[in-house]
Design a protein around this nucleic acid. Structure first.
Lengths: 363, 363
DNA sequence: ATGAAAGCGCTAACAA
DNA sequence: TTGTTAGCGCTTTCAT
């Protein structure tokens, strides 16, 4: 228990006058062993506080029992949840988690991939920056099963689990339309990633299906703050500024769909400053269902993302691949996000500025 | 580049007709080498896409170049920031990060400690559950430098870096007093951890110094939700319910200091339902300065926690210890949190319900 | 039921 | 400047 150095199999073997091998087998529960010998070994191991050295074991077995997880930003509540669910699931199967944060930087991503390779992780889960697929190309050729999370890199042909963002954008928009909105604006972050493009595509589809026009200026881009401080999530500030610009327009939209709930905060403030309020003056639909969104005033209607499900599936996919099981799942798995209806789109009946009519089935 | 298996030093040595050793030294940049030999080795390594096996290296060098990080809940914005800053700092020094989530469970904590031991991490950073110090006792005896984050376990005599919560509670309270509050209530989570106890102690000190009474019922405990879902941070809901109970009191406090900004959300809602609003009817001071807090209505006065600083210091301490440097820093390091004044405590001059008077210097 | 020998991929002595 | 030997702590043959 005490004393600086760690005890090894050899130490135990020596004090017990056994071979290293025997001790090893006793401890790893192999059968074909003298029960008394085993008891002896276990007792001694307990006594000296033996802890196996997993690096040594990994070196010979070839499996590090470790997953690599590469995330862009833990302060994004979605990714925080993803980390939790992945860690939980991995731990359940006795896998450790090696975490790397890329901060949306392609350079960091390259180093992250290198690092995972060196660590001989048993598998990798990656939210790619989507600047290039190259950093991740090596992994599978070297035999590290890899699943992409939330953002796909189709070129690689890797497994992918993510949110159906197109559907999310569609549902958010269709919901607004069903509630009577005819002119709708989207407020999105200015990042070149597929999740955002997909959401916008969903928005357009919903509008088109309802026969509504998407005028020029119906998609506003909130400039991505350059990441100086690692820990800051998207700031509502830029969204606020963009929203102020929107509110200066001659004709305001009936509804605004934002790319994440932080943006809704900025929009709420801009509205308040103009003496306006959701939902009566303008409906607001968020994206992400962040922990605070239900408690805003008004509570925010938003699209809930399946972080937990994505994390669980990702780990399961890796485990299947490691076990050599031919998975029955599709290569690309899109989880449908659910719309959470709250007051920011709930107009008091009869108050609708725009007569309902262009209704669309949301499901 | 292609082909299933990974190339090893031996592969390169074989094709180049060199010894493994030479290849090793060429790649690790040791000097005393033929420059042409080195060039040859580097070229061949590049060609076959050689990636060193860090487990093998660690086994012989004894250092895994990995830190263990044990966190209770990544969805808590404070811990999310802590993860980011630690990861960044560790990465800067080429250390990887092994992340474990304990979910406030003592059992998980025990397994986490075991796991770190097995992994032979070079050092550990731990936010303890504070149910017991036992799980962490082994680490230092086995020679794994460990620093405790945010919650201390004094019995262990380990290094500790955390927020000065007592000061935080004091500043929040003193600020309210300076703004004219005379009766103040604290809304805290119902967890047996020192951070909370410290905040309450700070509250009491501020009250005492101002000669104000802390009546029975001035500290309200919000029941901790049992963790069923790993990814959920504290729910504002329980705080809301507690706040409703508070608002039914005959005499309302002038100010409420809450244990985290999520609780402020619940309080805001309860106030709104009663037709009340901060700061005029009641001042509200949060804790944590969560990313959304500046954009609430009214913007929340809150205590900003030094997550980034704590993370950076923690890594530096570990690095010093590993380098064998006798650190000049104190064993226990408390970082002062800063009060961020916003509108939830900013009464329009002359509107104060209570005359100012019992002012206290906040600094 | 146990032991001896070999080796995972690498680095660190010591030789040559 | 390069090669040889040894060994990190463990598991896995193959003997005994």
């Amino acid at each position: 228990m005490a004393g600086g150095r760690r005890h090894t199999l050899r130490d135990i073997a020596a004090t017990l006058n056994l071979s290293v091998n025997t001790v090893s087998r006793a401890l790893s529960g192999k059968d074909g062993m003298g029960e008394q010998t085993r008891a002896l070994v276990l007792a001694e191991a307990e006594r000296v506080g033996y802890v196996p050295n997993s690096m040594a074991r990994s070196l010979v077995t070839g499996s590090a029992m470790t997953f690599g997880l590469v995330i862009t930003n833990p302060s994004n509540p979605f990714y925080a949840q993803l980390i939790s669910s992945i860690e939980l699931r991995a731990r359940t199967y006795d896998y450790s988690l090696l975490l790397t944060v890329t901060e949306e930087s392609a350079e960091n991503e390259t180093r992250a991939a290198e690092s995972l390779l060196r660590s001989s992780v048993s598998g990798a889960m990656v939210v790619p920056v989507q600047a290039s697929a190259d950093p991740w190309r090596r992994l599978s050729t070297v035999g590290v099963p890899t699943v992409l999370l939330n953002r796909d890199l189709p070129d690689l042909g890797y497994r992918f689990v993510g949110t159906d963002n197109e559907l999310g954008g569609y549902r958010a928009t269709a919901h607004a339309i069903a509630r009577g909105a005819r002119s709708i604006v989207v407020l999105e972050e200015d990042l070149p990633i597929t999740t955002i493009a997909d959401r916008i595509a969903g928005f357009r589809r919903a509008m088109a299906e309802a026969g509504l026009a998407t005028a020029h200026g119906s998609v506003m881009r909130v400039p991505t703050r350059r990441i100086e401080q690692a820990a800051q999530p998207w700031q509502p500030q830029q969204a606020y500024e963009m929203a102020r610009r929107l509110l200066r327009r001659a004709r305001l939209p009936d509804a605004v769909v934002v790319g994440n709930d932080y943006f809704a905060l900025g929009l709420y403030r801009a509205l308040e400053e103009h003496g306006l309020r959701a939902p009566d003056d303008m409906m607001v639909i968020g994206f992400g269902d962040h922990p605070f969104s239900a408690f805003l005033s008004p509570p925010l209607t938003t699209v809930r993302l399946p972080a937990e499900e994505i994390g669980t599936i990702a780990v399961d996919l890796l485990l299947e691949e490691i076990a050599g099981v031919r998975s029955a799942r599709p290569l690309k798995q899109l989880i449908a996000p659910a719309l959470v209806e709250r007051d920011s789109t709930r107009r008091i009946p009869g108050t609708s500025v725009v007569p309902p009519g262009h209704r669309t089935s949301v499901e």
